[in-house]
Amino acid sequence: MIPFVLRRLVQAIPTLFLVVTLSFFLIRLAPGGPFDLERPLAPAAMETLRRVYGLDQPLVVQYGRYLAALLRGDLGPSFSVRDLSVAELLARGLPVSMTLGALALVLALGLGVALGGLAAARRGGILDHAVMTLGTLGLTVPGFVVAPLLQIAFGLALGWLPVGGWEGGDPRHLVLPVITLALPQVAVIARLTRAALIEGAGLPHRRTLRALGLPPRVIALHALRGAALPVVSYLGPAAAGLLTGSVVVETVFGLPGVGRYFVDGALNRDYTLVMGTVVLIGVFVIVLNLLVDLATAAIDPRVRQAA
């Protein structure tokens, strides 16, 4: 177990290095700069700013400096938000994004497995068709269409929930963003659960359980355990989908999360903020994939043996 984790962490180093290098040169070589305003700055002021932030050095030197700072855990100052370091900004945005993502994941898992289980139990029935249709729609209707519709329905027409804002994580402000974020994942998880349950229905161990006369509840538990594998393997891509969705959701609902910071940073050429976000997300994705692999191994003995 521990050697496996260590090996994977070592393998993550080139990936992370590539992420940092690629994004550094992409954002640096992009046209425009962090101090471009509607009215251009006086050349002398621009020169001073560039010197203060070290932008007057050759790009390779800046890259070396950034890597050295990164190894010390220093993400640098933000270019667009004065007096705040990137680390401070991310420390503010991370709880927002994490809360949204975690809640959406829990909702997607709970609802997705429940719907998929129902559909499999009533295979070919109306409920099954309804769940599958809902699944197709949940996958194809993009979040940036769902979000305004939810805002209209629950925010404006019914007036039950606020249409945006964070307000320190007030639960009422979380409902619509979390639903928007979870919807496509609910669709996928429901489909996966349904397919796995139906496929598992013909397996010998299930026949044995039925032949032994065990109650349906116990059989269902065994069936769900078998169906857990594809769902758990999907958690990696699901998290990636939540990351993507968070960019839209945070924009539409005006939430101060990491996805928003990234888009604003890219638009304003806030070099260090963009880099900091990418590093954070890169680490997050790597750790998450590792956790998913460990969970898969814990569930499925065959994977354990292969590893």
Partner: peptide, 14 residues
């Protein structure tokens, strides 16, 4: 393993 959407956004900016 790269955070895909973030790279697309950076490519677009680039």
């Amino acid at each position: 393993a790269l955070p895909f959407v973030f790279f697309v956004i950076m490519l677009v900016v680039f």
